[in-house]
Design a protein around this nucleic acid. Structure first.
Lengths: 188, 188
DNA sequence: GCTTCATGTGTACAGTCGTACATATGATGC
DNA sequence: GCATCATATGTACGACTGTACACATGAAGC
């Protein structure tokens, strides 16, 4: 008799609803840890512990994965932004909310920090991602406009961006007190 | 007789001193046009119109090319920064110099804009490039300190960063008047 | 003029990539 | 139970990558 075909260790099929979601999360993890440049089908699949073929089944292209991942990330950051600001009863509280946003939420997590910058360069080349970025910016500006006039909101948004980016790239990041000082100075 | 080996059109050897410099410039062009991710030995060689082998002769690795390119770019931007600010006789002129820097130099050239963001993400993963970024930041802060105290210089530097980045990514970039307004507001 | 060797040129190689696709399997609706 | 088909899995393919390297050539020093 012919020997049974050699025992190719085919991994058992898994019932895995929500795998697509997990893949998007895995993609975000890979982007944050390794950068968009190193974010490949294979790397994401490895992180999520699924076979390569699963990527092409759930996504039409790598671009689609990136777009979905960044959209999810921007949504989650924007949500925090909204919550912090809508919880502020007055302007003074709003200023504190902004300071907390920058010092705690944005600078508190290297993860988020890197994701933002990665999104920026990706957006520079990819129209779909540029749309994600713009929706994100519009949303945070809108949140600021709950408490500040449109011009102030726009300028403040830019200042926040600068403070975060500047701190992110510095070996000597600004302290929360320095952040507070800069924001108060602008809004004084 | 054996036919002469088919006429492989070997390109004539060129006497080309300064080729290494041209390659670094070509690398900057490729980075600006296509992004770090698409910046390959072959792409740079094509842009500079030299054979692939020339890349590995002049540079030990692609990383080395990127580091040299970004260093050159940072130097050239920092030089403009220095010149604008050292030409300002007083604080009022310095403020105008800063406005001109942002509105004309930084936002005036998509090229420079993209290079800055590309450098930021590359720096996030590459220690050599992080050093380049930090030297650049230190230098621009130092230029600002000709006219402003250290704290103001640092905050202003961050604001500039934010204004530039924010405008770069927006479909609706700030006008020079809006830039002027934001900077005056901060320094008022 | 001859030698030397820095510089210039072409090509090969092994690895990784995105994507396509053939095949397997079990949850679901009947 | 049975059929269906969305989902899961493994693999193949051509394209492109960084890098190594063999060979060519002519400028520079003697």
């Amino acid at each position: 008799m012919r020997p049974a075909r050699p025992p190719v260790p085919r991994r058992p099929r898994r019932h895995d609803p929500g795998r697509r979601d997990r893949l998007i999360d895995a993609a975000l993890t890979v982007i944050a840890e390794r950068g968009v440049a190193a974010t490949t089908h294979r790397e994401i699949a490895r992180k999520a512990d699924v076979p390569l073929g699963s990527m092409t089944y759930h996504f039409a292209s790598l671009e689609e994965v990136l777009a979905e991942a960044f959209t999810r990330h921007a949504d989650s950051v924007a949500r925090v932004f909204d919550e912090r600001l809508s919880a502020a009863p007055d302007r003074a509280a709003a200023i504190e909310a902004v300071i907390a946003l920058v010092a705690d939420d944005l600078l508190g997590s290297d993860h988020d920090l890197v994701l933002a910058v990665e999104l920026y360069v990706a957006a520079a080349r990819n129209p779909a991602l540029r749309a994600v970025t713009q929706a994100w910016m519009a949303r945070s500006r809108q949140a600021l406009e709950r408490h500040f006039d449109a011009t102030t909101a726009r300028e403040l948004d830019a200042l926040i961006e600068g403070l975060v980016l500047h701190s992110a790239l510095s070996t000597d990041p600004m302290t929360p007190e320095q952040i507070r000082h800069a924001i108060h100075r602008f809004l004084r």
